[in-house]
Amino acid sequence: MISTISELLESHLNIIANRLNLPIIYENIEAAPNDEIYLKSTILPAMTTSFDLDGDSRIYKGIYQVGIVAPINTGKSRSQQISEAIINHFQLNTELIKDNFSLYIHSVPSAYPAITDKTTYTIPISMNYRADTLI
Rank of each mutant, 00 (worst) to 15 (best):
residue 72 I to F: 10
residue 75 G to L: 10
residue 69 V to T: 09
residue 57 S to I: 00
residue 133 T to C: 14
residue 104 Y to T: 06
residue 112 Y to H: 08
residue 94 T to E: 05
residue 85 A to P: 08
residue 55 G to L: 07
residue 3 S to D: 15
residue 37 I to A: 07
residue 80 Q to S: 13
residue 78 R to T: 12
residue 79 S to C: 04
residue 9 L to C: 00
residue 86 I to W: 01
residue 128 N to Y: 05
residue 116 T to I: 11
residue 122 T to S: 15
residue 13 L to A: 04
residue 3 S to Q: 14
residue 60 Y to W: 05
residue 5 I to Y: 02
residue 81 Q to N: 15
residue 107 S to D: 09
residue 41 S to E: 08
residue 14 N to V: 02
residue 51 F to W: 13
residue 24 I to C: 01
residue 41 S to Q: 11
residue 109 P to F: 00
residue 109 P to Q: 13
residue 68 I to D: 02
residue 129 Y to V: 10
residue 128 N to V: 04
residue 101 F to G: 06
residue 64 Y to P: 07
residue 43 I to P: 01
residue 25 I to C: 14
residue 63 I to G: 00
residue 12 H to K: 08
residue 14 N to S: 15
residue 24 I to A: 02
residue 27 E to K: 03
residue 86 I to A: 01
residue 127 M to E: 04
residue 91 Q to N: 13
residue 126 S to V: 10
residue 95 E to S: 09
residue 44 L to Y: 14
residue 67 G to L: 03
residue 47 M to P: 02
residue 39 L to W: 03
residue 107 S to V: 06
residue 80 Q to N: 12
residue 19 R to V: 11
residue 117 D to T: 12
residue 107 S to Q: 08
residue 46 A to S: 08
residue 98 K to E: 05
residue 115 I to W: 15
residue 41 S to P: 05
residue 34 N to L: 09
residue 132 D to E: 15
residue 82 I to T: 14
residue 50 S to R: 11
residue 64 Y to G: 14
residue 40 K to G: 14
residue 112 Y to Q: 15
residue 82 I to S: 10
residue 105 I to D: 02
